[in-house]
Amino acid sequence: MNHDHNEAHVPSFWRRPAGMALATAALIAGFYLLREHWGHVMGFWPYLLLLACPLMHLMHGNGHGGHDRHPQAPGRAQDDKQ
Score class of each variant (00 low, 15 high):
Pro71Ser: 08
His9Gly: 01
Glu7Lys: 04
Leu50Arg: 11
Trp14Asp: 15
Gly39Met: 02
Phe31Ser: 10
Asn62Asp: 09
His70Gln: 11
Leu51Thr: 12
His67Ile: 06
Ala26Gly: 08
His70Gly: 13
Gln82Asp: 05
Ala8Met: 06
Ala8Tyr: 01
His60Asp: 10
Leu22Ala: 15
Gly39Ser: 01
Pro54Asp: 08
Phe31Tyr: 10
Gln78Gly: 02
Ile28Gln: 07
Ala21Pro: 11
Leu58Glu: 03
Leu22Cys: 10
Leu58Gln: 02
Leu34Trp: 08
Arg15Phe: 12
Leu58Tyr: 05
Pro71Met: 03
Asp68Gln: 15
Met1Val: 08
Leu27Ser: 15
Leu27Cys: 12
Asn62Tyr: 07
Pro46Asp: 02
Arg69Phe: 10
Thr24Gln: 03
Ala77Ile: 05
Ala23Ser: 01
Ala18Phe: 13
Phe44Ser: 09
Leu27Gly: 14
Gly61Ile: 03
His57Ile: 12
Met42Ala: 06
Arg35Trp: 06
Lys81Tyr: 04
Met56Asp: 07
Phe44Pro: 02
Leu34His: 08
Leu34Ile: 09
Leu33Ser: 03
Gly75Lys: 00
His5Thr: 05
Pro46Tyr: 06
Phe44Glu: 02
Arg16Tyr: 00
Ala52Phe: 01
Ile28Pro: 02
Met20Arg: 15
Gly43Ile: 04
Gly65Ser: 07
Gln82His: 07
Arg76Phe: 12
Ile28Ala: 04
His57Tyr: 14
Pro74Leu: 00
Pro46Ser: 01
Leu50Ile: 07
Asp79Asn: 07
Leu48Ser: 04
Met42Glu: 11
Ala29Glu: 02
Arg15Tyr: 15
Ala73Trp: 14
Ile28Val: 14
Leu55Asp: 00
Tyr47Gly: 12
His67Gly: 11
Ser12Asp: 14
Arg15Trp: 14
Arg15Leu: 15
His57Pro: 00
Arg16Glu: 03
Gly63Asn: 08
Pro54His: 04
Trp38Gly: 04
Val41Tyr: 03
Pro46Val: 00
Trp45Cys: 09
Phe13Glu: 11
Thr24Phe: 09
Val10Trp: 11
Gln72Pro: 01
Val10Thr: 10
Arg69Thr: 04
Phe13Thr: 09
Asp68Ser: 15
Leu33Cys: 07
Tyr47Thr: 13
His9Asp: 08
Arg16Trp: 03
Asp68Tyr: 15
Ala52Val: 02
Phe31Asp: 04
Leu51Ile: 06
Ala21Gly: 09
Pro17Lys: 08
Lys81Arg: 06
Gln82Gly: 14
Glu36Asn: 13
Gly30Cys: 04
Trp14Phe: 15
Met59Thr: 08
Asn2Met: 04
Pro71Arg: 06
Val41Trp: 12
Met59Ile: 14
Pro11Ser: 11
Gly65Glu: 05
Met1Asn: 03
Glu7Met: 13
Gln78Thr: 05
Pro17Ala: 12
Ala18Cys: 13
His70Ala: 15
His9Ile: 09
Gly19Trp: 02
Pro71Phe: 03
Leu50Gln: 01
Arg16Phe: 01
Tyr47Glu: 07
Ala26Gln: 05
Ser12Lys: 06
Lys81Gln: 12
Ser12Glu: 14
His40Phe: 12
Arg15Ser: 15
Asp79Val: 12
Tyr47Asp: 07
Leu55Thr: 02
His67Cys: 15
Ser12Phe: 12
Pro74Ser: 02
Ala52Cys: 01
Gly66Pro: 01
